[in-house]
């Protein structure tokens, strides 16, 4: 699985990655719309450089190993490729924006100004480059190799080597190794990278597993509910029928308040009303 490793301590904040991304994906330029966030990402800007504590942190899609968006897209418009990138098929999308709600990093963005809007996000240059064995625009454009592309295992090893070589320079963990079950975009940083996540703190549990339990209960609940309801109906129906038969045998009218049958058209419907 391919991945990207970004070393925050190496980044000089030149935003060449942003420019390369714009050229590689043929994106436009952004105006400060009301619906954009401060992080600079938008439908036409899939990579941006955040500033924190005098350091530069590049933000892009994390390409989770088990992505929330892929798990919950009702039509499977988002897919995790074997190579690693999480890609989007606008031909399947119906615009529910569930992916935007589910992403723990707040990555997917929307064409709000368009009457025919699509979801937009970094796809690790899958179509034009990675699927052809070429590295993505952002890593190719970086002048100082602060962000590099490669096999996830190798990059993880490289990250750990850098930590071992310079323990004072980095936090001892690689961001993305185990967050939400691991991501294909890894970070080495001297500080916590909370600015990359959205909302409450995340743990290591993969996001799709959170809905999986509930979804696996769907078939048994469906069948169980049907069985219980049919059972109750049948028992009460039978008891009432027996009562009716007994009453008919004794020659007395059935108990008040109990209608003859659920099947038959009931006179209290007021058809003659």
């Amino acid at each position: 699985m391919k991945a990207i490793l970004t070393d925050v301590t190496k980044c000089i904040g030149c935003e060449r990655c942003v420019q390369s991304c714009r050229i590689a994906n043929d994106l436009g330029t952004v105006l400060p719309f009301r619906w954009l966030l401060d992080d600079g990402l938008s439908a036409v800007r899939w990579c941006s450089v955040l500033r924190k504590d005098g350091k530069f942190v590049r933000k892009q899609c994390m390409h989770c190993v088990q992505p929330a968006c892929v798990g919950i897209c009702p039509v499977g418009a988002l897919q995790k490729t074997a190579e690693g990138p999480v890609i989007y098929d606008s031909g399947k999308c119906l615009g529910c924006r569930y992916c935007m709600m589910s992403c723990p990093f707040g990555i997917p963005r929307y064409d709000w100004e368009s009457a025919v809007p699509f979801v937009r996000k970094c796809q690790m240059c899958y179509q034009g480059r990675v699927s052809k064995g070429v590295q993505p625009g952002c890593t190719a454009g970086c002048p100082v190799q602060a962000t590099i592309f490669g096999e996830r295992d190798l990059l993880l090893a490289e990250a750990k080597k850098r930590i071992a070589d310079n323990p004072d320079r980095y936090l001892p963990t690689v961001f993305g190794e185990s967050e939400v079950g691991g991501t294909c975009v890894l970070y080495l940083a001297p500080m916590q990278l909370d600015i990359l996540t959205l909302g409450n703190k995340l743990d290591e549990r993969p996001m799709p597993s959170r809905t999986a339990t509930a979804m696996s209960a769907v078939p048994p609940v469906f069948v169980g509910m049907g069985a219980v309801m049919t059972g109750i109906y049948w028992i009460i129906e039978r008891r009432m029928r027996l009562e009716r038969d007994k009453a008919a045998a004794n020659g007395t009218p059935p108990k008040a308040g109990h209608a003859p049958s659920g099947h038959g058209h009931n006179s209290s419907d007021g058809k003659e009303g």
């Binding site: 919950i72 499977g76 418009a77 399947k92 119906l94 569930y98 799709p208 809905t211 999986a212």
Partner: peptide, 12 residues
């Protein structure tokens, strides 16, 4: 599309 493209894992 919901009828044609399936993702039964999705609550939606």
């Amino acid at each position: 599309h919901m009828v044609v493209f399936w993702n039964p894992r999705s609550p939606l």
